[in-house]
Design a protein around this nucleic acid. Structure first.
Lengths: 139, 139
DNA sequence: CCTCTAGCCAACAACAATTGTTGATGAAAT
DNA sequence: ATTTCATCAACAATTGTTGTTGGCTAGAGG
């Protein structure tokens, strides 16, 4: 569900109206997807086109989009929620210095957690966080 | 450095005095290690023995212990810093519902991130977060 | 023993990210 | 046309954490 027509229907299916704000936030998030914007970052860009758009509304719309499984929010310890345009499972590169995040699409062989370590946990998914430094921070 | 004698010396080596507060916080963290307490959780227990111990001081001592490489703080998206008694690399099970965390010591085969996805990042380490539900939350 | 200093305390304030609230305005759907 | 939903501005509140200040206390070094 990465195109606007699909989203329009998804909104309506949930009883949500299709508004300029929703349209704008959706498109901005799609465009910024690769850098995993925070809500603030989305708002910053969005207000260039719609200066009256409130941060509060951006938060609300991002929540809605998450509810529609259009985006996914993650917390990788950078201090704020970050948004992924790809709701499917993938992995992340995190820069220890500047907090930059990049998606990584690699096959990670499923790791079996032995029962004596699982202690009753049921594992649903497994994410890998690769930590290191980005090109910029290394120079 | 998991015993008190070692820590005493480490404190002194950094010019930090050995105080009852430091001793208490250290011992509590060691004891609670398996459940990866937050600062608040440590404080809650610590005040049972030393009711005047301030949360502010707990934060300070935890920072110091992290500086001594005795503990490690991690952020796994549960809303607060959590502390590991094991400063070495390991992995984590996180309960999606209650935020419970368990250490996992398994060998994870190193995953190669192909250069076109690395984009200049240098990968230092790779941690796996296993997400799911704990035994308690499933029942 | 005395002094100096670090550590701790309480009591604040500030912070950042996020969520809740309210009442008014405007636009969509029926 | 009417009802309902969305949004807005302007706030307040929350949570986890850190900074500040001034005063008290205890330990280390002489």
């Amino acid at each position: 569900m990465t195109n606007w027509q699909g989203i329009e229907e998804a909104f309506r299916a949930k009883g949500l109206r299709v508004t300029p704000q929703r349209s704008l936030v959706f498109r901005i998030v799609q465009k910024m997807g690769a850098e995993h914007p925070s809500a603030e970052a989305v708002h910053l860009w969005a207000t260039r086109h719609m200066p009256t758009l409130s941060l509060r509304t951006v938060y609300a719309i991002l929540d809605e989009l998450e509810g529609l499984n259009t985006i996914r929010s993650i917390d990788l310890g950078t201090g704020s929620k970050r948004f992924c345009v790809n709701p499917h499972l993938h992995h992340h590169l995190v820069c220890d210095r500047c907090g930059k995040i990049k998606d990584v699409f690699v096959d990670v062989p499923p790791v079996e957690v032995p029962p004596e370590q699982r202690r009753g946990f049921s594992v649903r998914q497994q994410e890998v966080v690769f930590r290191g430094q980005c090109a910029y921070c290394r120079s």
